[in-house]
Structure formats: C-alpha cells, structure tokens
Nucleic acid binder design. Sequence first.
DNA 1: TTGAAAATGAAAGTCGTTTTCAATTGGCGA
DNA 2: TCGCCAATTGAAAACGACTTTCATTTTCAA
Lengths: 152, 152
Amino acid sequence: MKELLRTKGFKSTPQRELIFDCFFSLGKHVSVDELYQKVRELDPSVGHSTVWRNLKLICQLGLAEEVNIGDGITRYDRTTPKPHGHFFCRNCKKLLEFDVGSVMGALVEAAHEFEFEPDGYKIEVQGYCSDCRQDDRTNDVATRSANDERKA
Amino acid sequence: MKELLRTKGFKSTPQRELIFDCFFSLGKHVSVDELYQKVRELDPSVGHSTVWRNLKLICQLGLAEEVNIGDGITRYDRTTPKPHGHFFCRNCKKLLEFDVGSVMGALVEAAHEFEFEPDGYKIEVQGYCSDCRQDDRTNDVATRSANDERKA
DNA sequence: TTGAAAATGAAAGTCGTTTTCAATTGGCGA
DNA sequence: TCGCCAATTGAAAACGACTTTCATTTTCAA
Ligand SMILES: [Mn+2]
Ligand SMILES: [Mn+2]
Ligand SMILES: [Zn+2]
Ligand SMILES: [Zn+2]
C-alpha cells in the first residue's frame, strides 16, 4: 500500500494507512460515517475530513467507487475485476451483489448504436430480498416495516 | 388532469395545475430548480416548496420517478410504459435514453436466482456521448472540458 | 354559504458533503 | 542527519439540496 501511494505521488501517513486498512477490512458499501466510526475505534484522534478525503483518494487510485442508491448517503464500494450489479432491498436496505456478465453484451451493443463510449456501468434493481418478501409478513423486519408505514 | 387529481383525493389549485403543465412541457429529467424557474416565468409568486411538493405528488401519482445520477441533484423523469436505461455523458451531462428490453430478461433471471422480488430497475451507463468522444477533441464542448480540467 | 381539510409560501431546519485555514508532518535534497 | 517545503491533517465553518414548520389562504363537499 505504501508503495502504491508513493508511486502515485502521495505521502504515507499513519492516519492514511489506518483509514485504508479499515476500509478494506470493512468490506463492501461503506459510508464515510461507518468508516469514520471504525477508524475512531482504533484512533479517536482521526478527523472526519481526513476520512472523507482518503476515501476520495481511494477512489482516485481506482480501488473503490462511489455508489449512490438515492438515500442521500454516498457509499464506497471496492472495485471488482468485473462490474457487478446490486439488488437493493427497499425494506432492510441490504445491497446484494450479482454478476452482470449476462447483460453487458446487450448494454455494450446499445451503447454502440448510440455512438456512446461507455466507461462505467451502474445496474441496480430495487425490490424486496428473500427475507423481506411482501408475501412473507411474519418475520421481524417486515413487521417492523409495516409498522413504520402505518406511522408515516 | 383535474380529474386524475380529484379521483385520487387531491385538490386542484392554480399553482398545482401550472406546475403539472410546466413539468410535462419541460420533458425528461427535470430538477426541482429547473421546474421552479420555468414555473416562475409564468407566475413569479409560486414558492419553491410548492414546486417541490408537487413534484413529489407527481411521483406519488405514478407519473414520474426520481432519477439520481450521483451529482447530488434529484431529477424527475416522466414514467415510460417500459423501463428505460440512461447513457450519462460525463462531459456534457446529457442523459440519453435507451431501450432495456434486451437486458430485462437477464436481470429478472438473476433476481429469481437470488429470490429477490424486483419492482424497479436503474440501468445507467456512464461515459462519453458522440459529441464528446475523447477521440474527438475538436468540438466546442470537448475543448471547453479540456480547459476546465486544466483549471481544476 | 360555510367549515374542515388541504394547499401554499416564506423561512428556518436538517444533514451529508466540501472547503477553509492554521498547525503538523513526511520525505527529499543538501 | 538536518532543514525545508509541499502535502496532510483536524476543527470548524460553509455549502447546498432537500425537507419541515407554521401562519395564512384556498378548495370543495355538505
Ligand atoms: Mn457492490
Ligand atoms: Mn429517462
Ligand atoms: Zn430485505
Ligand atoms: Zn456529451
């Protein structure tokens, strides 16, 4: 990691190392705040803006990219060798990843027809995951959701 | 329009009629502010929050849905009989629409494998449109973009 | 016509993101 | 190793789109 940073002209700092480590240990779809919390467990002196800036840096380095599911919170997703799609559950807010190999061909073809030069794909399917299916109202999360809707 | 509103239990007001008309005359991918500007040309007394609220109402009625391309601005897109995808040009920010019929099958199938019940699809391809292709640096927009990047 | 409910507009509040700025620090060259 | 300078940091403030509040006005069914 130090090496990657140096070759790209960035300095290595304790905060930066910590933030990078935490990001990659947390896994997929991490928000600034989630990462901030994690980092603070190990070093409470690290600032919010430093976490934010280094998350941006991680993106610049091509190690992650922003994911925006429309809830106003930007999440950072480790880049995968192949692009992947997301199933976003409207109820429990989980993001499931799935392979998009089978749709890429059609997308590339469509792009070609429009003389559009694609360099990024965002494929997101919204709905309800197996735990939250609407025909399965007996589990906890669904019940909670029903209550939420009633209140709103 | 009055009728649709009334049957759904909403009142008809001059502002509401104006906002609805302007929205449908503006076309696709309209932001609150764009619509607000347009409405104000015809009636400067209409408030920002009224435009916002009615845009939400238009969505509730199923006449439009929110589109989030990650630039922090929510846009409202008239619903189409069939779902469509977007090509988003990183340079000129244009949104081109394309038919996603050819990818829906694969998506539905993938969803089925995950026992995921889909009810919304967001298919967005980023890149450069024909006017802004990177191998075509002679046109205005691309040149402007190059200048922008130099400044930044 | 009249009253309850809905709608409006200005203003303020919210909240995640981004910038500012003074202080600190890493890393290269002497 | 030392010293310098640009990069980095952290606190705080600024930003900006979105959302809510509330007093007032308007709609529309009875
Ligand atoms: Mn992902
Ligand atoms: Mn569209
Ligand atoms: Zn779920
Ligand atoms: Zn373009």
